[in-house]
């Protein structure tokens, strides 16, 4: 057996746990409940049916919820870029008193689980009259702990740009801010890509926060909606849940497969140097 065949073999085996769950989710959403629970599980539905998909839209305002998740994730992504790109640039390339201390301080946010701060955050937003709105789901990720990772990635990227760029900018009479805007940011496209992916996915997957902050089904986001497909007595409707889960995962997967070169390479170029 050649080394190549061996490598392919290893890769194929390793692939199974990565691919099988998604495959199972999608195919099971086309099965009746009894077949989903059968052992051994069937690889393909015996008689595929789209019943569950119809129910997804009948039981919940699913299209509205889809839109909510989509627009919130988009706004959060743009907002995070606006906050983290200048911050990352400043931490990487500008010298100012206390920059290290400030950086270490915001780094704390990177490691704070949201369960820790959810109650005080809820009280803060309730005091401001903003519960059951999308504001907490936008403001906290853009300004709070989740955006710290974005700033961190941005900083790591800007560290890799050669010093000479700054000198050249100074010779051209560009100030620091202009150097960031005209030179730094255009060069940072891979980092921007990476941050966009991280941020979008983070917002798209948010689970605890929507459950705590939102109470009107028309304002729900997708992960929250997934848990709402239950029968009259709270028992989960497995096929409908899996159909809804497939609907939330597939478009993102398709976008990812189409744009994966940009995705992956954007991500890749950020971690190059520490």
């Amino acid at each position: 057996m050649s080394r190549k065949t061996l490598l392919y073999g290893v890769l194929c085996v390793l692939c199974v746990p990565f691919v099988f769950p998604t495959w199972w989710m999608v195919t099971s959403s086309l099965k009746p409940v009894s077949e989903i629970l059968a052992f051994p599980p069937s690889l393909l539905p015996a008689r595929p049916m789209l019943d569950a998909y119809r129910q997804v839209f009948e039981l919940q305002p699913f299209a509205t919820q889809y839109w909510n998740s989509l627009y919130i994730a988009a706004v959060v992504t743009l907002g995070t870029l606006a906050v983290s790109a200048p911050a990352g640039y400043a931490f990487a390339r500008l010298r100012f008193r206390g920059s290290n201390a400030l950086f270490l301080m915001i780094l704390v946010g990177l490691l704070i689980p949201s369960e820790v701060t959810i109650v005080p955050l809820f009280r803060i937003f309730h005091t401001a009259g903003l519960t059951d709105t999308h504001w907490p789901l936008i403001l906290v990720p853009v300004l709070g702990a989740p955006s710290v990772l974005a700033t961190f990635i941005m900083r790591q990227f800007f560290l890799t740009l050669p010093k000479e760029l700054d000198e050249a900018a100074a010779v051209d009479g560009l100030g620091r801010a202009a150097a960031f805007w005209r030179i730094g940011l255009p060069l940072a496209r891979p980092a921007v890509g990476a941050v966009s992916i991280f941020t979008f996915l983070h917002s798209w997957n948010l689970f605890l926060e929507p459950i705590v902050f939102l109470s009107t089904p028309e304002r729900f986001t997708l992960p929250q909606a997934l848990t709402q497909f239950v029968d009259a007595y709270g028992g989960p409707m497995w096929n409908v849940q899996l159909a809804a889960a497939s609907l939330t995962a597939l478009p993102v997967l398709v976008v990812f497969v189409l744009a994966q070169k940009q995705f992956v390479e954007g991500l890749a170029h950020t971690g190059l140097k520490g």
Partner: peptide
């Protein structure tokens, strides 16, 4: 998470 969510809302003043 019914009871949990309910008490979280109560804790938050809602």
């Amino acid at each position: 998470n019914y009871t949990t969510t309910l008490t979280t809302q109560m804790a938050g003043g809602n």
